[in-house]
Amino acid sequence: MMTTPILEIRELCVSYGKVEALHHINLKVAAGQIVTVIGPNGAGKTTMLSAIMGLLPSKGEIEFQGEVQRDIEVEHLVAMGMTLVPEKRELFGEMSVEDNLLLGAFQRYRHGDRDEGKTMDQVFATFPRLKERRAQLAGTLSGGERQMLAVGRALMAKPKLLMLDEPSLGLAPLIVREIFHIIADLKKTGVAILLVEQNARAALQIADYGYVLETGSVALEGESRQLADDPRVVETYLGLGGKKQ
């Protein structure tokens, strides 16, 4: 079913000093699909995204839009259409919501695109709450609004691949539900999504394909419907596996 991968990583390894944190990860994201990477805390999910985005040095091959990236630089990847919404959001707290969004379009502006006003209207259509708060400083937003702003800011870059790191982190269930509905809707606009989540059930419900990461390696992968029913997923999370032995 994976016909044209927009992102393909092969044998990705990342080390912190002398300690290897990711071991030979292989993963594909097809155009227009949602692929999720789930797994418990400390499995290496954030490390993996940081490596793909060029924030961390890594070994292995990263192929984006059919091109193997030799010189992985964040700025270059952003210009090519890859964006990351990081776990910590990394908003510009002392700037307004509107300025935060504008900066999302920086790389396109630099290359001559001047349609940031139109893109912002689209983002506001997706997140009406941001429009209400457009003049407010990002640092004064609530947790859910911050997440919306982080996603909205990423959309300003008109990405071809959107990577989301734990969008549900620290959010109340109702907001999580809202965010996940929006992510599911984004798929319809044609953007491919790589979704890293701890919240396994929610992630598997909206994803087409899933990987389970455990202690730095892929432990399981498959169609998300099958993974959702796999008892091993539950074991990974609640540690019921050990009891049975």
Partner: peptide, 14 residues
């Protein structure tokens, strides 16, 4: 371990 609130918190759900 059996508390439904805890299960919900860990596994989540939409």
């Amino acid at each position: 371990q059996k508390d439904p609130v805890v299960l919900e918190a860990y596994l989540g759900g939409v």
